[in-house]
């Protein structure tokens, strides 16, 4: 049984077709990696899944946990358990990370018919997850992402993921801009959250994150299509040879 099933998704942004027929199926417990050159449509796919409205889906279907994902609002997708760690996390001045996450956690609870967490329980969970991703308390009392370093922003995304315990986590280049220690911590965080009920989709340019989190499948996205899928060895091969050996072939057949 698939958790996420993407069938022939086409999507436009500002009238231009970016996704040109994507097919992808993810089962609970699986880790998938998407790689591909800049501008190939990786973030666009993540945005389409998360429900960003400026991306218009013109064709195709997506089911998530047996629901028609495309019919759900972005907030309901989130509450159903879809999480996107942003490639470029957004700053919201004056809104502390703690308050932001508290709002998010309680909205999700409300959706599932649960009472909001009281401050004590919330704090307890926060402490736990803070330790998990080795994030500093002082960071959480600051305005969310405002003035955070690149690495701090990424770590904060993983912290939010830990707090929200999503079914499907989509991580868009969460490894970019991390130093070696941070990379290990982030990967660790992902691994600790990963279990047979949960799936992870990582978008990355680098093999090094995959060394830590061991993907079951690796896909290459090129020019709006998944042009090759394989196991973790594919990532190694890509690292060695670059994308050309795949993309040249695709470009040739396209001609």
């Amino acid at each position: 049984m698939y958790m996420l099933s993407i069938k022939n998704i086409h999507a436009n942004v500002e009238g231009k077709e970016i996704l040109k027929g994507i097919n992808l199926e993810i089962k609970p417990g699986e880790v998938h990696a998407i790689m591909g050159p800049n501008g190939s449509g990786k973030s666009t796919l993540a945005s389409v899944l998360a429900g960003r409205e400026e991306y218009e889906v013109t064709e195709g279907e997506v089911s998530f946990l047996n629901k028609n994902l495309l019919e759900l609002s972005p907030e309901d997708r989130a509450r159903e358990g879809l999480f996107l760690a942003f490639q470029y996390p957004v700053e919201i001045p004056g809104v502390s990370t703690t308050n932001f996450i508290k709002a998010a956690v309680n909205e999700k609870r409300k959706y599932h018919g649960l009472e909001p967490l009281d401050s004590v329980s919330f704090l307890k969970i926060m402490k736990e997850k803070m330790a998990l991703v080795e994030i500093d308390q002082s960071l959480l009392s600051r305005s969310i992402n405002e003035g955070f370093s690149g690495g701090e922003k990424k770590r904060n995304e993983i912290f939010q993921m830990a707090m929200l315990e999503p079914k499907l986590a989509i991580l868009d280049e969460t490894d970019s801009g991390l130093d070696i220690d941070a990379l290990r911590i982030v990967a660790n965080g992902i691994n600790k959250l990963h279990n047979p009920e949960r799936a992870v989709l990582v978008i990355t340019h680098y093999q090094r994150l995959l060394e830590y989190i061991q993907p079951d499948f690796v896909h290459v996205l090129y020019n709006g299509r998944i042009v090759k899928s394989g196991t973790k060895e594919l990532a190694l091969e890509l690292e060695e040879k670059g994308y050309d050996f795949i993309t040249d072939e695709v470009d040739l057949t396209a001609e």
Binding site: A50, G51, R52, S73, P74, E75, R77, A78, R79, F83, L84, F86, P89, V90, E91, I92, P93, G94, V95, N99, F100, I101, A103, A104, E107, K108, Y111, S143, Q160, L164
Partner: peptide, 26 residues
């Protein structure tokens, strides 16, 4: 971007706007 970020975390647009505005006015 801010609005979408909030919504992706499960916060509905109305509350997101209130959150952002209150942050601005803090």
């Amino acid at each position: 971007d801010q609005l979408f970020y909030c919504r992706q975390r499960g916060i509905d647009p109305e509350e997101a706007v209130a959150l952002i505005v209150n942050g601005f006015a803090k």
